[in-house]
């Protein structure tokens, strides 16, 4: 597996396209069944950070009807499987996004919607908007565009379901757990210390 480095985003894309990196073959049948259910039922916490929030409601309407794919919106991060970060994230928003992400229960996935989450988009020289979402949160699926159409979002969901079902790569939450120091350092770089409750505190009970 390539490191999650400066070029991590590009490298992961390569991994997804290449069958031989797939971890599917190492999994048991039970795990495959579990993954099937996880792909079949997705609860979305649609966090409307930026202008992309306006592209999300249409996918639940009769024109696009994403409920066909088992995707349902929920209000609280506790029940959500997927966090959609829709558009630019300012510092203040990112803090809430990270907080919501950490309150979600594993397995959890992040979809970055729009160019702003990829490279800052039109806010590339803004003083308080982050440029790369995957420095702070593990992103499982990027959907580019400014703004992407609802069809693109649906395509993103289908691709993500495919990734989960076929276990093409290690899910983001595992990276977040294992490389937490990396993410934490990046978060602290812009927030300073003690601005959100730390990951270790939240999940200290895991080992009990």
């Amino acid at each position: 597996m390539p490191e999650n480095t400066q070029e991590g985003f590009i490298d992961q894309q390569k991994v997804l396209d290449n069958e031989e990196y797939s971890i599917k073959n190492t999994q048991s049948i039970i795990q495959k069944a579990v993954d099937w259910f996880r792909a079949r039922s997705m609860f979305v916490l649609a966090y409307g950070t930026g202008c992309g929030a306006i592209e999300m409601p249409p996918i639940f309407t009769s024109r696009y009807d994403i409920e066909r794919l088992g995707v349902v919106g929920v209000a609280t991060p506790r029940q959500a499987d997927i966090l959609i970060v829709s558009g630019y994230c300012s510092y203040k928003t990112l803090k809430r996004v990270i907080r919501s992400y950490e309150q979600m229960n594993e397995p959890k996935y992040v979809i970055g919607l729009g160019s702003c989450t990829i490279n800052g988009g039109m806010y590339w020289d803004s003083y308080n908007t982050i440029k790369k979402l995957d420095e702070y949160l593990p992103v499982d699926m990027y959907i580019n565009g400014c703004m992407p159409r609802p069809e693109a979002l649906i395509e993103g969901f289908v691709k993500l379901q495919d990734n989960i079902r076929n276990a093409k790569s290690e899910a983001g939450y595992i990276q977040y757990r294992e490389n937490n120091a990396f993410y934490r350092a990046n978060q602290e770089k812009i927030f300073g210390k003690n601005t959100t409750p730390t990951f270790e505190e939240n999940f200290a009970g895991m080992n009990q």
Binding site: R96, P197, N202
Partner: peptide, 13 residues
């Protein structure tokens, strides 16, 4: 997973 802090509730972020 037991929450450590009583204030770790989902409170709109």
């Amino acid at each position: 997973v037991k929450v450590r802090d009583r204030y770790d509730i989902s409170y709109c972020g």
